[in-house]
Design a protein around this nucleic acid. Structure first.
Length: 609
RNA sequence: GGGGGCGUAGUUCAGCUGGUUAGAAUGCUUGCCUGUCACGCAGGAGGUCGAGGGUUCGAGUCCCUUCGUCCCCGCCA
């Protein structure tokens, strides 16, 4: 057979089955492991499907065996041979193809390989699938093409592709079309910092890479496309965090003549389908929680609903308490909240509660302290319980529904926002450390009724973005306090305590849009200069519309149980936005800079005191 | 921008209050081994202890500077 014919008939290693017994097959791939018994020589051959065992027997073909002895890990080869059923002890149940092997008849080496900088085979994970891949991430990124050759990374990339495909198919069924929007676009002042691209044709001007296609997708609604989506790269030049990348992928969508309910009904099946790709089930409809309730009950706007443990406000119950710290905090207008750590009294020692939680953990969250009580033999017990009257103790037991073995943890502060924040963080810390989180559970929810504005450095700023439609209170609002009381028609999709997406019903009235900009402190000239094209567009018969964007990297990471979004991006940047593989970003030549009429400011050595 | 951790063999790590020739596992390599599958057995090679400076009779270890990286907070409409 010619090489060409061989390739046509190529089989994937892990797709061989009992139906192939005694057939001659041809496979291509990489040498995964070698077990040399002096005479008999076993190897695993790996391709994108998995591995299959090769056998070289010197009694059958001495020359071939000698040739095979020269093979090393990661050599790229092709083989032809006979599929043979393994017998008795020789079967390996840990491997999908463990019941067969290939008795090789011919071998050709496409290319040899240097010893790789880290071991690529995942043979050890046959026994222990919990063992994570412990190699420095920068080294993995430097040799990402090898890292991606590993079975688990291939599975993640394939899962990502399948998820994207499921989404495209579903949105197609729903009447959405994919429209591309520019990558070189206009810098906008609101929001995150832009990545800038200098223009060679227009001196001293810059394009910006899009933080999202926000305005373009709204313009597509003005154009009458009715339902748009795009799986698109977005760019934000913000400081990095473990689950953040300078460039990331969003599912961006927008639809006309719709309301919030349409978005919820569209997205819930979509999210279900995404998790179904990896065999995970979610129940719908997703619960809704208002921003206010999320803050009060969970301490943040992205509540983790995989476990209950709601925060309880006991300020009123303790209005006249003798416990001095609580009393003075309440007198200064603060509040007291607590959580009930069910059934952990025996695991949370007094020493741990006071020395670890109260003195180290809570202060690291920004809290001044923590009080605790244990429920034992039907009564509260702690170092401070004597300062609480019988009625107050009874009220606490009722408020928390406390039973024997429970531990109550209290956070008090004169600043109510601090109480929510610290108590919310404590809730997550305790849940993580004492095993309240069911890692197999997927708990989505919609967070709704966000405030339209928030105060930043004493000025009004959009909480979501300035194109979000405010509720009715906006039309009569005039003072800063009025504006802060206005809610928006924004919604966030939160899964397992992570915000995976958000969107809103948009403004389709140019006058309201202009008023929003002016409330945000933009002058008429600013508006015209920054958003003129957009405000103009709204004057030509804009349909009511709204949409949403989903962070696909996070969603795929969650679906594939990956710790970081870097695990589900083929070629990510590291934590400091550097690419160890390509060494980007890099310096450019003076010629390139001159062409762009740019000059680099050299780092100045400051001697000033 | 603020705070913290880490940097020792190709890889993952240990190395105590500073004290001979810096260790382990794994990988690599050589030899032996016919049913292994994380094969086994015996041997070998492999280190400017991130870089620079300082303290000391003596520094992987202590101090300063610097570079790299990871984590927390700010930031991310």
């Amino acid at each position: 057979m010619t090489e060409n014919q061989l390739w046509k008939n190529r089989r994937y290693c892990a797709e061989l089955t009992e139906k192939d017994y005694n057939q001659t097959v041809h496979c291509c791939g990489w040498i995964d492991t070698i077990r040399d018994h002096g005479q008999l020589l076993f190897m695993h051959l790996r391709d994108k499907s998995g591995v299959v065992q090769l056998v070289f027997d010197p009694e059958k073909d001495k020359d071939l065996h000698a040739q095979a002895e020269q093979l090393r890990n990661e050599y790229c080869v092709s083989i032809s041979g006979t599929i043979v059923e393994r017998v008795g002890e020789a079967k390996n149940d840990a491997l999908p193809t463990g019941h067969l092997e290939i008795h090789v008849q011919s071998l050709s080496v496409y290319s040899s390989s240097k010893t790789p900088p880290f071991v690529l085979t995942e043979k050890s994970q046959v026994d222990d699938d919990s063992s994570e891949f412990k190699v420095d991430e920068d080294l993995r990124l430097k040799y990402r093409y090898l890292d991606l050759r590993r079975t688990s990374m291939q599975e993640k990339m394939i899962a990502r592709y399948k998820i994207m495909k499921v989404i495209r198919d579903y949105l197609d069924e729903q009447g959405f079309i994919d429209v591309e929007t520019p990558v070189l676009t206009k810098s906008t002042p609101e929001g995150a910092r832009d990545y800038l691209v200098p223009s060679r044709h227009h001196d001293n001007t810059f394009y910006a890479l899009p933080q999202s296609p926000q305005m373009f997708k709204q313009l597509l609604m003005v154009s009458g496309f009715d339902k748009y989506y795009q799986i698109v790269k977005c760019f934000r030049d913000e400081d990095l965090r473990p689950n953040r990348q300078p460039e990331f992928t969003q599912l961006d969508l927008e639809a006309s003549f719709i309301d919030e309910a349409y978005i919820y009904n569209l997205l819930e099946p979509l999210v279900k389908k995404v998790f179904a790709v990896v065999g995970k089930e979610i129940s719908a409809p997703f619960p809704h929680i208002t921003y206010h309730d999320a803050m009060e009950l969970y301490g943040n706007d992205h509540p983790d609903l995989r476990f209950d443990m709601k925060m309880v406000d006991v300020s009123e119950k303790l209005r006249n308490v003798n416990y001095k710290i609580f009393n003075s905090i309440l007198a200064s207008g603060g509040s007291i909240k607590g959580i009930n750590v069910k059934g952990k009294a025996s695991e949370m020692s007094k020493n741990m509660l006071q020395e670890e939680l109260a003195k180290k953990v809570v202060p690291s969250f920004g809290g001044k302290g923590m009080s605790w009580m244990k429920m034992e033999n039907g009564a509260l017990n702690s170092n401070v319980v004597q300062f609480f009257s019988e009625d107050e103790q009874k009220a606490l037991i009722e408020s928390f529904n406390a039973e024997d073995g429970d531990v109550l943890l209290f956070i008090a502060d004169s600043n109510k926002a601090v109480v929510n924040d610290v108590c919310g963080r404590l809730r997550l810390y305790v849940a993580e450390k004492w095993g309240f989180i069911d890692k197999n559970k997927i708990a989505p929810c919609w967070v709704t009724d966000f405030p339209m504005f928030e105060l930043k450095d004493g000025r009004l700023s959009s909480m979501h973005h300035p194109f979000t439609q405010p509720d009715h209170a906006f039309s009569s609002a005039s003072s800063t306090d009025d504006y802060l009381a206005v809610n928006s028609r924004a919604y966030d999709l939160v899964i397992n305590g992570e915000e995976v997406g958000g969107g809103s019903i948009r403004i389709h009235d140019s006058e309201i849009q202009t008023k929003i900009f002016s409330v945000l402190g933009l002058s008429k000239t600013d508006i015209q200069e920054k958003f003129g094209f957009f405000v103009n567009a709204l004057q030509f018969g804009t349909p009511p519309h709204g949409g949403l964007a989903l962070g696909m990297d996070r969603l795929v990471a969650m679906a594939t149980d990956s710790d970081s979004i870097r695990e589900v991006i083929a070629f990510p940047k590291n934590r400091v936005a550097f690419c160890p593989l390509t060494q980007a970003p890099s310096h450019v030549s003076d010629e390139q800079l001159t062409e762009l009429k740019l000059a680099c400011i050299k780092e100045e050595v400051s001697i000033t005191d």
